[in-house]
Amino acid sequence: MKSAVIVFPGINRERDMARALSLVSGREPEMVWHAATALPAGIDLVVLPGGFSYGDYLRCGAIAARAPIMDAVRAHAGKGALVLGICNGFQILCEAGLLPGVLMRNTRLKFICKEVHLRVERSDTPFTRGYNAGDVVRMPVAHGEGNYIADEATIARLEGEGRVLFRYVAPDGSLDPEFNFNGATHAMAGIVNEGGNVMGLMPHPENHVDPAIGPTDGRGLFAGLMEHGSRAA
């Protein structure tokens, strides 16, 4: 599976992402500068990494969402090909209209950097096939704007169509407002688009892939994507 990591000015997780992709797939991703107007040939997976594109000016992800490369990312998504946005990447996908809703300021107004528990809601998607439905996994978060909101009709559709793939939960996997630390609607941490090929996720799976550093719960996401890619190929 060939992947590309899009690099916007102010992004800071692109090397973590590249390392995670290399570790799990054995293949270095292409790093693509935001000013490019086309993706390299043969890319299966496009990743928008985390960070603070354009210093979060105006709104998180707003300016990056209008970068030249985004037309190519939109076309890639339009073909049904895979797009993954982590943290700021999730915010960019929402601003670009590739995912519904918005990530607002955390309800407690704090930037939160810690490890959280996520429940995998289903395993029959390219993004979650490396897990089992109901698995509780640990991933770090580091954001000030992760409070996912959308209008009622959109939330109802996301829930009704099973498009919520990860939720913030207590360590035992139960929904608990105390563990929905950023106030996201229905504790949504990761959602997919209508086609199921574009996912936004606030936590950082790329930071939990190496046993030398800590837990490796993030590997499942990348391993699942690679498995999906090899079957599709």
Partner: peptide, 9 residues
């Protein structure tokens, strides 16, 4: 419409 406002919110 293009940038200054996010008309979702």
């Amino acid at each position: 419409e293009k940038l200054l406002a996010n008309t979702v919110i």
